[in-house]
């Protein structure tokens, strides 16, 4: 089937099967920043923004995104770079497999919450698992990124 979408503000038509998941379609179309961590919505690694909201692309059918807007980290390069600089300053980078999905969720949070506290930030981001960092340095970097505005 054909699915018309807007990916990173560019109109695209995906050719896919009705049962295909968005994660696999996006990777097939070379959006390789979108990655698989688990198979059942429980790690956050495959997060993309669908109409501005973070969703797990491993569990969203491509067929269901007809007419919608998708943003991957390729679409928020300037914001990812700003966040990335704070990650660098705080030593919050480790493997980074989940960093694009975290950047997208942080970006969505910035639009969703007004001046969130550290506790609110943690609650918002709890679905983004990380096995490398122990989270604390990520959170320091994210608070600084939010304070930039």
């Amino acid at each position: 089937m054909l699915v018309n979408v807007i990916v990173n503000q560019e109109t695209k038509t995906f050719v896919c099967e009705p049962g295909d998941y968005l994660l696999d379609t996006l990777r097939a179309y070379n959006y390789l920043s979108v990655r698989r961590g688990c198979d059942n919505t429980s790690c956050g690694v495959c997060t993309v923004l669908l109409n501005g909201k973070p969703v797990p692309s491993c569990s969203v059918l491509t067929a269901s995104v007809e007419g919608k807007s998708i943003i991957t980290v390729e679409g928020i390069q300037a914001e990812a770079e700003k966040l990335g600089r704070h990650f660098g300053d705080e030593g919050a980078d480790q493997c980074g497999y989940c960093n694009p999905s975290l950047a997208l969720t942080v970006y969505a949070m910035k639009n969703d919450l007004f001046q969130p506290t550290e506790a609110e930030v943690r609650e918002y981001l709890v679905g983004n698992l990380c096995r490398c960092t122990g989270y604390i340095q990520q959170e320091r970097a994210i608070m600084k990124y939010l304070g930039d505005e």
Partner: peptide, 11 residues
């Protein structure tokens, strides 16, 4: 900062 941090963050 990590030599590869920015590139990895940017996907």
């Amino acid at each position: 900062p990590s030599v590869d941090g920015l590139g990895v963050m940017k996907g």
